[in-house]
């Protein structure tokens, strides 16, 4: 595979404070890496160092094999970058701005016009092209920032919160766009929207207090949830006690949790021990004993819980 982005021991200190602590990562062509982490975890600082904007206190970073400090111009040629908050020149129009970026990117003539038109099309900017950027909505500004990053069809894209401030439809469009272009590129996005990681990322890095504390696929991260693989069923209130005891006796089932009583019965959740598959056994037992169940499903677990456990030091100690 093609390694497009690589960092070695990337570290940044501001004064005595270590904001990023020896981050090692590689991103291959075709991968979409999600940076997850609480605010202030060091996501943006790490991105700024990968792009070569900030000089790391220690470590190095390469883009397409070019060291961002030793060979910055070459590295930046291969890079499309959307900085945090999508900063833009407020007095320019999106058209003027994109033409400026295209010129700096060395595009000329028909090629320049074509690429600018493509970027406008991909990010749906046609209706605001001549308006000063200052007067645009947050969503449009973000899309101008994206258009600018995509303009030269770069091999590497680094997008700091690309969907921040977009409405659900726009978020969907941007994720679709990232998904469409991802096979030929290496992409890093940062986000604190967990569903976004599941929607677009092939791999996720959880960063907390400047350290990488998890590097896994979104599915792998979800599997770390205690609820992952647990079976939840709704049983008639009269049978609740019997079923609860029966569940506990099934091999592989750990704790059984009783939820709220609702109109059609009681909610019971059987947690699987060590990732055992308990659903089949429970279903068979339910049929054999004629349980009056109105619903039975396997829990996927949720990224929220995993994220909180990983990034909240007190929760981590408790877990």
């Amino acid at each position: 595979m093609d390694t497009m982005i690589a960092t070695e021991g990337l570290t940044k200190e501001f004064g005595a404070k270590r904001v990023v602590d020896s981050v090692n990562l590689t991103v291959q062509r075709g991968e979409v890496l999600g940076f997850l982490g609480p605010n202030g975890a060091g996501k943006s600082t790490t991105m700024k160092m990968i792009t070569g904007y900030l000089r790391p206190t220690a470590g190095r970073s390469t883009i397409c094999g070019f060291d961002v400090l030793d060979n910055p111009i070459e590295a930046k040629r291969h890079l499309g970058y959307l900085p945090e908050g999508a900063p833009l020149y407020p007095d320019m129009s999106p058209r003027g701005f994109l033409l400026f970026i295209a010129a700096i990117r060395g595009l000329r003539g028909a090629e320049k016009a074509k690429r600018v038109a493509q970027a406008i099309d991909m990010t749906q900017l046609a209706e605001v092209l001549a308006q000063p950027i200052d007067t645009l909505s947050k969503g449009f500004k973000r899309r101008v920032g994206l258009a600018q990053a995509l303009l030269h069809d770069p091999d590497v894209l680094i997008l700091d919160e690309p969907t921040d401030g977009l409405d659900p439809n726009q978020k969907h469009e941007v994720r679709k766009l990232i998904h469409e272009i991802s096979p030929t590129k290496a992409i890093i996005i940062s986000t604190h929207i967990l569903e976004e990681v599941e929607a677009v990322c092939t791999r996720a890095l959880v960063i907390s207090q400047g350290r990488v504390i998890a590097d896994d696929t979104p599915a792998g991260l979800i599997a770390r949830s205690p609820r992952h693989g647990a079976v939840t069923l709704t049983v008639a209130t009269a049978q609740a006690e019997t079923v609860k005891n029966a569940l506990s006796s099934i091999a592989g089932v750990g704790a059984v949790e009783q939820g709220k009583a609702s109109g059609n019965g009681v909610l019971l959740t059987a947690f699987a021990k060590d990732g055992a598959d308990v659903a089949t056994a429970i279903a068979e037992r339910a049929a054999a004993d004629h349980w009056a169940i109105s619903n039975l499903h396997t829990e996927r677990g949720n990224l929220d819980a995993v994220f909180r456990t990983l990034t909240n030091p007190t929760a981590r100690k408790a877990a």
């Binding site: 904007y53 070459e74 930046k76 040629r77 945090e84 900063p87 020149y89 407020p90 990117r105």
Partner: peptide
């Protein structure tokens, strides 16, 4: 102030 310096200096210019 605008933060555009980050955009500007990550373009392929010296």
């Amino acid at each position: 102030k605008q933060g555009t310096i980050e955009l500007f200096l990550t373009l392929p210019i010296s």
